[in-house]
Design a protein around this nucleic acid. Structure first.
Lengths: 345, 345
DNA sequence: GCCGAAATTGTGAACGCAAACATGCGTGCG
DNA sequence: CGCACGCATGTTTGCGTTCACAATTTCGGC
């Protein structure tokens, strides 16, 4: 607890009641929109509330009712485009459903300790349900701390967790990206993968492999990047020296940016010499040099689905394992072209 | 409130007490680390807690004590790099200070209605203090809803709000950026400003003007962009047609990216024909083509200062108007060069 | 071996609210 | 004309915790 003087308490329900000349219960009824309150009483109470600047004490309310309309979100890496968009989307969807949102931001990549703590607090606060943005396994560990009866929805979780889950169909995303490059005429497609622990990395990789398999192409070696431009650049410096490498599917847009930079430094032009597809469609992707072809994830839809699944469980009281898949869409721009002549600068 | 069956309640303190063979008060003492509890009793209580999976009810605790160790953060546009970094930084700093954080994310650019609501909820939840990430005036409106006695810290707020505030010194940032271009030999520097409502936009603009004034340079007309690459691109298309425009200070890195794209399309090379400085130092700025010279804001430091100011107020019970300024630092990369020959492609 | 202080534990009340139950009044119907 | 029912409102109780205070035990010094 915070040291220091206790904050002075504001007016409470009985103050309002006294001022309006009614009982506190009538005030409660007005506040909760119960029937059987006369119009005149209601306005008197409302006036008293306004005059006193009364606001009801949520803790007392939650304590008395045993329910809260707060849902918790556990998120990591919220400076990344994907997770932050997800949180934003869930927030908007929750607002629409008249739910309040408490977001527990797990700092940094070290998830375990921090997320335990955040889950603990969310549960203690009486969150009615929890959304785990769980693109890595570490997030699942904290899920076990949640007492039974509290509904959970995961985002980007794994099927074996048996939770209600909503994911972007990253497998299909990888498929779309790779097919797009293949259809441009490339013999095969290289893939710079995302970090191994992320489920999305694995799914994109599988989509890539599947697309290659469809046309009988052999999968080239697969370098692995983080999600950053810096790591994409490192991989790109290698790939730029491989003449055969004319088509690349990058783990995400920022990795693609790093690759573009590395290619440029080696004098390999995009898309004339090397075709490239990213993932995410970050807002600035269209303004890379040249505009990046990529696969967009519909985060807003993910947020809506997550809230919907949570509300379902809340309403029925059952914990379903229903899951939703959101389809990504290919955004073709300027970084894909048929394989041309391989001229070095 | 959420409809549906009320969630079943877990074990409560008296359950633990019964199991451990003590009174509920002793359990409370153990939980709160009070002195005068014998070691054997403590371990018995702890064991009972573990066996029952007991977790204390925060609502009841807050109700009884009248204080919470939760601080609220009101933030907007959390998909933008700046705000999301800020939230992250505050989160880490709060964790270090053993505070819990509840983040209210205001969706989209329409701040007013949503932030009222979020503030209302944060106050009702009994937040001990509030951090407003208030880079625009709209955020200040909601500040008035906060009852007196609840400490407030603003981030990127205005002095006239009389609140404890911490800001990045964006004026100096603008100064640094402009001087850097001037020192490279440019006669004057153009500025593509950020959105008018943002305080940071205005401060950067003033820094720019001040730097120009230092050397007696006359300020060229100032186009205004949003924070996006798209709007930077629009401005850039204009600037690219102005031969005199050889040095540009962009509102932020993404705007700079849009400008780079527009310049490239017009065949104006960076930095040979046009020098460019951005703002923010987003992680991928170094991988733009070419690497973007920019001004970095130390968000982590901002977060630490914000939490420090809040704790000060919490401890003393007074609402100070102390403020902190965090100095930005210039990151020179490849987009600034002396003015050369203006050749068109 | 006894007294007082310190240590340890227990008891009752209060926090602010909502739900269940109780009350008083008017009104329609037989 | 009386009875039952519905409306508007008041009273009481309990949610799970902490706090103030009371009760009991332990211990050291003389």
């Amino acid at each position: 607890m915070i040291p220091g003087p206790p904050p002075q308490r504001g007016p409470v329900m009985s103050d309002v009641a006294a001022r309006a000349g009614v009982s506190h219960q009538t005030v409660s009824r007005v506040l909760n929109g119960h029937p059987h309150v006369s119009a005149t009483t209601r306005t008197r109470v409302l006036a008293a509330i306004a005059e006193l600047g009364y606001r009801r004490n949520l803790s007392a309310r939650v304590l008395a009712t045993g329910r809260s309309n707060v849902i918790g979100v556990v998120a990591q890496n919220t400076t990344l485009y994907g997770p932050s968009s997800m949180v934003q989307a869930i927030g908007e969807a929750a607002l629409g459903a008249d739910l309040s949102l408490t977001v527990g931001h797990v700092a940094g990549y070290d998830a375990t300790a921090a997320s335990r703590r955040i889950v603990e607090r969310l549960v203690q606060q009486g969150a009615a349900g929890l959304v785990f943005i769980a693109p890595v396994d570490a997030a699942a560990e904290a899920m076990r701390l949640v007492p039974g009866g509290v509904p959970i929805v995961t985002v980007d979780g794994l099927p074996e967790w048996q939770s209600a889950n909503v994911s972007v169909d990253q497998y299909t995303g990888g498929l779309l990206a790779t097919r797009h490059l293949l259809e441009a005429g490339h013999r095969t497609v290289w893939h710079v993968a995302g970090p191994e622990p992320w489920h999305g990395s694995r799914a994109r990789e599988e989509g890539w492999r599947a697309a290659l398999a469809e046309v009988g192409a052999v999968a080239p070696p697969m370098p692995r990047a983080g999600w950053s431009a810096a790591s994409g650049y490192q991989c790109g410096r290698m790939l730029a020296r491989i003449p055969d490498c004319t088509a690349i599917f990058a783990a995400n847009d920022h990795v693609a940016l790093g690759i573009m930079r590395a290619m440029a430094e080696q004098g390999r032009r995009i898309p004339e010499d090397v075709s490239l597809v990213g993932f995410d469609d970050v807002p600035e992707a269209g303004y890379f040099h040249p505009g990046l072809s990529t696969v967009r994830q519909e985060f807003a839809e993910v947020g809506r689905q997550a809230v919907r699944l949570l509300l379902d469980q809340l309403a029925t009281g059952t914990s379903s394992a229903e899951s939703a898949l959101v389809e990504p869409v290919l955004i073709p721009r300027a970084t894909v072209a048929p394989p041309g002549n391989q001229e070095k600068a």
